[in-house]
Amino acid sequence: IQIFEKGDFSGQMYETTEDCPSIMEQFHMREIHSCKVLEGVWIFYELPNYRGRQYLLDKKEYRKPIDWGAASPAVQSFRRI
């Protein structure tokens, strides 16, 4: 998965294949504004440590949070399923 600090795949980008319990600790990001799921299925969580509201992401590109069903870019953790 590739995660971006700004919408439309702009700003700082990080790519990982590992679960992330805290985007702040692992990537020094506060929010995720866009992402590209390159393979597999992932779950975004609103809070750290896989808690809070969940969003299921299939293999595709998400230009903004509304594309994965979120009203805001408040994603604090994610993991692959």
Rank of each mutant, 00 (worst) to 15 (best):
I1H: 10
I1N: 00
I1G: 00
Q2Y: 05
Q2E: 10
Q2M: 05
Q2D: 06
I3K: 00
I3R: 01
I3Q: 00
F4E: 00
F4G: 02
F4V: 00
E5I: 11
E5H: 07
K6R: 07
K6T: 10
G7I: 12
G7H: 11
G7K: 14
D8N: 14
F9G: 07
F9Q: 12
F9S: 06
S10Y: 13
S10C: 05
S10L: 10
S10Q: 11
Q12N: 14
M13F: 07
M13S: 08
M13G: 07
M13Y: 14
M13E: 12
Y14Q: 15
E15P: 07
E15H: 05
T16F: 15
T16E: 13
T17P: 14
T17V: 07
E18Y: 07
E18T: 07
E18S: 11
E18C: 10
E18R: 08
E18G: 12
E18H: 07
D19W: 08
D19E: 08
D19I: 04
D19L: 04
D19S: 12
C20I: 11
P21E: 08
P21V: 10
P21Q: 11
S22E: 07
I23E: 00
I23A: 10
M24Q: 05
M24T: 10
M24N: 15
Q26G: 12
H28W: 13
H28E: 10
H28C: 12
H28V: 09
H28M: 06
H28T: 12
M29A: 13
M29T: 14
R30I: 05
R30M: 13
R30V: 04
E31T: 14
E31I: 13
I32V: 08
S34Y: 01
C35P: 01
C35A: 08
K36V: 10
V37N: 14
V37R: 12
V37G: 05
L38C: 06
L38F: 08
E39R: 13
E39I: 08
E39M: 09
G40H: 02
G40Y: 04
G40L: 01
V41K: 13
V41P: 06
W42G: 00
W42R: 00
I43F: 10
I43D: 02
F44D: 00
F44E: 00
F44Q: 01
F44V: 10
Y45C: 02
Y45G: 01
Y45T: 02
Y45E: 01
Y45D: 00
E46V: 02
E46Q: 12
E46P: 03
E46M: 03
E46I: 01
L47T: 02
L47K: 10
P48W: 01
P48D: 07
N49L: 06
N49D: 10
N49C: 05
N49Y: 07
N49K: 07
Y50S: 01
Y50F: 09
Y50V: 00
R51C: 10
R51E: 12
R51S: 12
R51P: 00
R51D: 10
R51M: 13
R53Y: 04
R53W: 02
R53A: 07
Q54H: 12
Y55T: 12
Y55C: 12
Y55M: 03
L56Q: 06
L56M: 03
L56G: 13
L57A: 07
L57G: 11
L57P: 01
L57Y: 01
L57K: 02
D58C: 13
K59V: 15
K59R: 04
K59M: 04
K59D: 04
K60V: 03
K60S: 10
E61S: 02
E61T: 02
Y62E: 03
Y62M: 15
R63Y: 03
R63L: 15
R63K: 05
R63I: 15
R63C: 05
K64Q: 06
K64C: 04
P65M: 01
P65S: 09
P65E: 09
P65T: 13
I66E: 10
D67W: 13
D67Q: 07
W68V: 06
G69V: 06
G69R: 11
A70E: 09
A70R: 14
A70S: 10
A70L: 15
A71W: 11
A71H: 13
A71P: 15
A71C: 06
S72W: 10
S72G: 12
S72N: 03
P73G: 02
V75F: 15
V75W: 05
V75I: 03
S77A: 09
F78Y: 08
F78A: 04
F78P: 00
R79Q: 06
R80V: 13
R80W: 12
R80Q: 01
I81M: 02
I81G: 09
I81E: 11
